[in-house]
Design a protein around this nucleic acid. Sequence first.
DNA 1: AGTTGGTCTGTAAACGTTTACGGTGTGCTG
DNA 2: CAGCACACCGTAAACGTTTACAGACCAACT
Lengths: 346, 346
Amino acid sequence: MADGPTINTIAERAGVSIASVSRVLNGLPTRQETERKVLKAAEELGYVRNAVARSLKSRRTDQVAFAMADVGNPAYLAMLRQIQPVLKAAGYRLVLHSTDAVAADEIDVLHSLGERYVDGLIMSPLRVTDAHLEMLAAARAPVVIIGSVPEGTPVDNVRADSRTGVRLAVDHLYALGRRRIAMVNGPLDTVPGAARGAAYREALEDLGLPYDDDLVQIGDFYRAEGARAVAELLARVPDVDALMCANDLIALGALDVLRAAGRRVPDDVAVVGMDDTDLAAASWPSLTSVSLGSAERGKVAAELLLDRLRGGDREPRVVTVAPRLAVRASTAGPAYEPADRKEGGA
Amino acid sequence: MADGPTINTIAERAGVSIASVSRVLNGLPTRQETERKVLKAAEELGYVRNAVARSLKSRRTDQVAFAMADVGNPAYLAMLRQIQPVLKAAGYRLVLHSTDAVAADEIDVLHSLGERYVDGLIMSPLRVTDAHLEMLAAARAPVVIIGSVPEGTPVDNVRADSRTGVRLAVDHLYALGRRRIAMVNGPLDTVPGAARGAAYREALEDLGLPYDDDLVQIGDFYRAEGARAVAELLARVPDVDALMCANDLIALGALDVLRAAGRRVPDDVAVVGMDDTDLAAASWPSLTSVSLGSAERGKVAAELLLDRLRGGDREPRVVTVAPRLAVRASTAGPAYEPADRKEGGA
DNA sequence: AGTTGGTCTGTAAACGTTTACGGTGTGCTG
DNA sequence: CAGCACACCGTAAACGTTTACAGACCAACT
């Protein structure tokens, strides 16, 4: 691992100045003869341009960071899957941060923008505190936030619409004739928990269905917790005929419990999940799920950032991605089993 | 986004030289008074050290790259999940490459090591060509390969053991009394396909079971392809009582077809997948699957790389990670349904 | 008082590029 | 043949750090 050749080494060997070498390497107009000598020397030496030195001079790194709350979470992975190719196509490298859902880590990432090791940042914070807003206002590089940020914050912003998402699901269940539609939610002090709970209530009201406290069960966003919550719910309101779950994992837990209790899905109880993760198509019965467009949000975020890196000095933009209901067997019956999707391999 | 303060700005404001500023900022011994002035100025200016300039001088970037074949593939994601925290804890940033399973892209990544934008690389190539070996021999930074690499290649190497993995599964099926054990494989010209096919044959021989061409069906590593393959297989050998699938997705396809054909799992036909992805625990019945230790391979690879970055100049090391059989309901029956795993949320 | 030793600080070079500027040589025109 | 325009090239500065080296200062010793 001896020291590699630099532009100086080439200059010596080719008998020209470093300026000429640089010009050739950057495709600036040069006499053929010089170009030939330089390229020959570079080739022979196995020269590769030092990205760090170039960055120092050019004040750009061709790197973009993506800070996700949790490397394990399928929703963020869906974003990552879309972000990666967009950046790659534009010639940027991707630096990945996992903030482990810790606000302090998110602030750290924003702070580290000052180190200028990336040209921009896409971040999906799980909650936006005042400290976040302060750092965002002072950010030393363009930032795109996936999630909601107050009006007036000087960053581009890509939002989901969980309210409409929940409504799609509830309307769907209503259309199928269900009238005792319960909600199995995660903690209400989380952003998604609160939003989805409120949206459920609204959707019922708009349909003219009574809101019944007994039909709401709070657990957590995990499979086992979801199962526990559904078990309680079934004991309390045996006549429930549909479950709106705040999450695919909760919904999987619901399927476990319903199966154990001998309730048929969807005949006796219909089940809807949220996030439309890979798990939804894999479960059995396959799970109807509300997609909040993680994938698309990732793609849009990457495109917004690229746009800004290309110099757009326009107003901060807000894009809201429309939710979509993926109807499968857990509400619509076996005819909706997806058997023919191509999914990633080996 | 005005130009940020540099060490020079601080020096001026504090009335000292840039050398003193640097010393204070790096915790080298300094007179209290100087230290105070510098820190005060830095604080007031909101100074953040420029990572690029520092890297140029120090010849290290505190970045490590991970090149995975496919951002969508759960096996690589499992590696990523382990690699990320290990690097983060050691103070390294993670640069993520997706090579889209294209050999030329992998070569590109190896080549780009010469740009010195990272201190090291973890790579999981889907196949190792001569071009790979050449680049590896000339690599300008430490590399760890996840996958197999010939003896004598000067890089650390973390291997799976799919042969033993397949044997674990086949032995398990045999112990359950199955004697017509079929294999549903992916293309034989892929590395995993070939290895798993050969291992299946070996395992049967060692158990004294006859190898029967009719019991082998080639499809592809996707769910729909798996389903198609299993349908053909069932038509040809209706008395099959166990399916060894080369992949979890194939196995999910198998479950689809068996259900449609009215065969009970595992009573009539037992099913085993490979890779032990999240999908295995989510499906119903839950899927017995051979884990080839993707997660652990990622972890070990990260640790090996860190070790080398810390200066170890030792021989290249080879670590083989032992496979593990995750027994679930698709072979062992409902008692093995996992109902209580905590999995990632929101 | 002159040396010694020690602590702290400043000057300047270096890391490997890019690029503004001015100099050289060529070929042309008058 | 003098003069000019032009194409090409080299010198040197700059990007923002780290660090080797030497200078300045002070206290203490002979």
